[in-house]
Amino acid sequence: MTTLPDHTEKKLGLAIDLDTCVGCQACVISCKEWNTGHYGAPLSDTDPYGADPSGTFLNRVHSYESQPETGPAQLTHFPKSCLHCEDAPCVTVCPTGASYKRTEDGIVLVNEDDCMGCGLCAWACPYGARELDALAGVMKKCTLCVDRIYNDNIPEQDRIPSCVRTCPANARHFGDFADPNSNVSRLKAERGGIALMPEQGTKPVNTYLPPRAKSAPTGALTPVAEEPKGFLAWLDRALEAL
């Protein structure tokens, strides 16, 4: 059913730390690796070794440059995947009932057996978090690794989304935003986690921890000694005397 639940017991999602993400793309690759072999149709590539490669990914890392009023520009690496919105517009537009939001944990999923590949859910998503697979003809999106987080057959430390497990900078955190004492809720509160495009009214569950204010690089690049001393002073004098 593509009507949204009034309330979900949990609000599972990610807190993504824009201060620590180094843009290494490891989450992109580990996401592709896990999700091409498990839940649903594989994430296909077309012309992967040719001149015009293209493929389906559930997680992509952009990089942005922001220019403060004073001081140098700042670079931010910006991972982007489904935000598992509370008011997910991708769910309500679906005509077949393939798109749905789970009542128990709030994960937004696509039932590929019902998807007809019309693409309207991707149009409804402001974040570009859904990609129609070119080979399977069904809509693919982040599942929050629903086949890992409840999976008793894998070691306990692996029961988190693949992107979170692999991040070498610890920039991705997984947890329940409905629980005010969870790791992600505390991070969101401490760091002032923000919603992307709040004006779209989607109420994303995933939160982005904004980069901390940087101290201005005053003095860092000024010369440490105006007047040369010792050997350099002798060399300076010797060269001038020539």
Binding site: S63, E65, Q67, M197
Partner: peptide, 16 residues
């Protein structure tokens, strides 16, 4: 879209 407006004017530096 990025929430980076709090720093200043933002542009795409490198696409994914």
């Amino acid at each position: 879209a990025t929430g980076l407006g709090r720093i200043g004017a933002t542009r795409l530096f490198e696409p994914p």
